[in-house]
Computed example of a mutant assay.
Amino acid sequence: MSSDPAPKPLPFHYQFIAGAIAGISEILTMYPLDVVKTRAQLSTGTQKVGIVSSLKQIVQSEGVPALYRGILPPIMVEAPKRATKFATNEQYTAMYKKMFGVEKMTQSLAILTGVSAGITEAFLIVPFELVKIRMQDKANYGKYNGTIDTLTKIIRHEGPLALFNGLEATVWRHAAWNGGYFGVIFGVRDVLPKAETKEGQLLINFTAGAIGGTVGTALNTPFDVVKTRIQGYNGTGPRKYNWTLPSVALVAKEEGALALYKGFLPKVLRLGPGGGILLVVFETVSNFIRKNIMKD
């Protein structure tokens, strides 16, 4: 592990900007896989459809724009969401170091700061996630005409509090993902040799972020499945899924434990490389700010 001093911390507003740019870069690159993931998680049947087949079916039956249906809510929230992820992680790091009286980061501290950042992030994104899920659901095809229409109809027919359906599940999902993501990033960077070149550092960042994204996805997919089911409920008929842990148990009982990993492949294909993209862009923008904007 390198003994070089840590990079100079950025002020919160610069962390926010770097996180926002990183988040938008990731979502523009990987979004179609999120549509496939949502469709798989909403399916309660046993039939399995491959990623390529699912993409082909969506394009053939609904057109290419369907691969980006519901992208506006994530784009609207992506900047504050990813900015919150990285900026609050940095803020929690400083807070916990002071609280526990330690100077150097440890893996357990990295996990704790990640979980804390994930919980903070979850409260911000719930309404946007709910609108996105409703728009991505094939069963709602033709029901909603864009983001504003979806938002308006949810509020009109289900009440404004419906926008926060799935909050508890979202907290579980983001706490698990962020804890795994930042904890693994610390561990991978700790064991890899120090990069000698700029390209080598980019490779280390992408590797650490991609492994972190993969582990985070493995940890949080069951919570993501039930979050999708909870937010997919549109107020018609009895509510089947409500609280997270009972819903996890119900899905496992009725559909088998593997059903808790529905949509895992498209999700991990998005958030594995996506986690690498996030970290590379965040670190690149942060270093640019340090060198060109925060000159001593």
Rank of each mutant, 00 (worst) to 15 (best):
L10A: 12
T150L: 01
T84W: 06
Q91Y: 13
G187V: 12
V251R: 02
I277M: 04
G179D: 12
G263I: 05
Y241H: 13
T120E: 07
A208M: 09
S108R: 10
T150G: 03
F16M: 14
T147D: 01
G187M: 13
A210H: 01
K8D: 10
P9H: 12
K97L: 08
I58H: 05
L67D: 03
T106N: 00
V188G: 04
G142W: 08
L112T: 12
D190M: 06
G263V: 01
L278P: 03
S43W: 04
G180M: 11
T152K: 12
G235T: 03
F100M: 12
L260E: 07
V36N: 02
K143P: 03
K240Q: 13
P65Y: 10
E199S: 11
V191M: 15
V126R: 13
I75P: 04
L258Y: 01
V35H: 05
E196Y: 00
A110D: 08
A249G: 00
M294V: 08
R82M: 06
L55W: 03
G118V: 01
L269V: 09
A195G: 13
K97D: 07
N220F: 14
S3G: 08
M105T: 09
P11S: 07
P193C: 05
I111K: 08
N205A: 12
M105V: 04
A210I: 05
A79I: 03
V171R: 11
I24T: 09
Y92P: 00
F123P: 00
R239C: 12
W172T: 07
I293P: 02
G159Q: 07
A176M: 13
L260D: 06
T244A: 10
I293Q: 09
F123H: 09
A162Y: 05
Y96K: 10
L151W: 12
I133W: 02
F186C: 02
A252S: 15
R270G: 08
S247H: 05
G256K: 05
G23D: 10
L151G: 03
E255S: 11
G19E: 07
I71K: 01
T106D: 05
A6H: 05
K153D: 06
G274E: 08
G183T: 07
G159H: 07
G275T: 09
A20S: 15
F223Y: 13
A22D: 07
F264V: 12
F264S: 10
R69T: 14
I27F: 08
T217L: 03
A18Y: 07
Q47F: 04
Q41C: 08
N165Q: 15
M294L: 15
E121M: 14
R189Q: 14
F164H: 11
T93R: 08
V77N: 06
F264D: 02
T197M: 04
S43A: 14
I277V: 15
G159I: 02
A110H: 07
E168S: 13
S61D: 14
A22L: 06
V226W: 09
S53F: 02
T150E: 01
V281N: 03
T147K: 00
K198W: 08
V115P: 01
W243L: 10
K85Q: 11
T207W: 10
A83D: 04
